[in-house]
């Protein structure tokens, strides 16, 4: 780079200095809000996590050092909730690859494709408490639509399937025990955790991730796929060796964001559908923080758990970045 003449450089500096004040003016509203509601609170909650602060003020306030963190690590419930939080990530690969699959289908040139795109996007657009209430009734073991369908198919084909108890059951597809960290054959099946995962896939699969993939697919240079076809590659080979590598940055972005979102998630589902049960199997760390802070008023302890979650997300995101970026740079 060549250095611009001194006169120009000076005028640029002067301009930068002048613009700095204007910039501060423009940034101020956002910056104030940011300091007050984001960065301030983050530090505040770190400080509070070293205290026994209780909103009911039955116990006098004092600093307790790392006691909250020690208590947390010795608490078997905390570990169950951590396992739950990770368990809910199991749906992520299905949701992400499902989004990709739908996007590939929607990228075909067909009549009326816009209508399908709209329909697929509808669940994620309207997602929220209303849909969770709906799914709670769909999952009802006795009169819900899902078990009615399972029973119907089972009778029709004489399969003799007993439908799952869904939100009332602690069973899970990995057969994890509730009491301790172990696999228990009796726990194998479909239960509340799986029900929430399935609902999550339904809500998310046609959402923003699908649209991101759709956008990325239209950006794949056509010469590349045409060259592959000319060389006699099958459409699967073209996808696997030409399109998929081109999608890598999008996949990476989606995975990182889903990871961050997933680890923070599960609050609404627990609050609306299960109250965290049965036996705490649908309580995620974020719901745990909520109950500790806003039902038991243990602000100090809840802050410690929230910082543990923050640290977890931070470390895992860094790891993702390390490995992901290596994968992406082809």
């Amino acid at each position: 780079m060549t250095t611009p003449p001194a006169r120009l450089q000076n005028s640029r500096r002067a301009r930068e200095r002048r613009d700095l004040w204007v910039a501060i003016g423009f940034l101020l509203p956002n910056l104030l809000g940011f300091l007050l509601f984001t960065s301030g609170p983050v530090l505040f909650s770190l400080v509070v996590s070293f205290s026994n602060w209780n909103l009911q003020q039955t116990v006098p306030f004092r600093w307790v050092g790392v006691e909250n963190y020690v208590q947390m690590l010795h608490n078997s419930e905390f570990w169950l909730y951590t396992i739950n939080t990770f368990y809910f990530l199991l749906g992520m690969p299905i949701a992400v690859f499902g989004s990709l699959f739908l996007a590939v289908m929607l990228s075909q040139k067909l009549r009326g494709i816009v209508i399908f795109r709209t329909l697929f996007y509808l669940p994620s657009f309207t997602s929220g408490v209303a849909l969770m209430i709906l799914w709670k009734s769909l999952y009802n073991p006795d009169f819900g639509l899902i078990n009615a369908a399972i029973r119907h198919v089972s009778d029709l084909l004489h399969l003799g399937i007993t439908p799952p108890e869904w939100l009332l059951s602690t069973k899970n597809v990995l057969g994890l025990d509730v009491e301790r960290v172990a696999v228990n054959r009796a726990q194998w099946g479909m239960g509340a955790r799986d029900a929430i995962i399935i609902m999550g896939i339904w809500m998310g699969i046609g959402g923003n991730n699908m649209l991101l993939y759709l956008a990325a697919l239209t950006n794949v240079p056509q010469e590349l796929t045409e060259a592959g076809e000319l060389d006699g590659a099958s459409s699967w080979q073209v996808f696997r060796h030409i399109v998929w590598p081109q999608l890598a940055p999008t996949t990476f972005f989606i995975l990182v964001m889903s990871f961050i979102g997933g680890l923070q998630g599960g609050f609404e589902q627990a609050r609306v559908m299960t109250n965290g049960g049965p036996a705490g199997t649908t309580t995620t760390l974020s719901y745990h923080i909520y109950t500790k802070a806003f039902e038991e008023f243990q602000i100090g302890y809840a802050s410690a758990v929230s910082w543990a979650l923050f640290a977890l997300i931070f470390v895992l995101t860094l790891v993702n970045w390390r490995f992901g970026n290596k994968e992406v740079s082809y």
Binding site: S39, P41, V42, F44, S45, I289, A293, S306, W307, L309
Partner: peptide, 20 residues
């Protein structure tokens, strides 16, 4: 720096914001 704050989980700021 602004972008990095996108990573801060909502649950961390929730309790202090409530007390505020």
């Amino acid at each position: 720096l602004y972008l990095a704050t996108l990573m801060i989980p909502g649950v961390v700021t929730m309790i202090p914001n409530y007390t505020l």
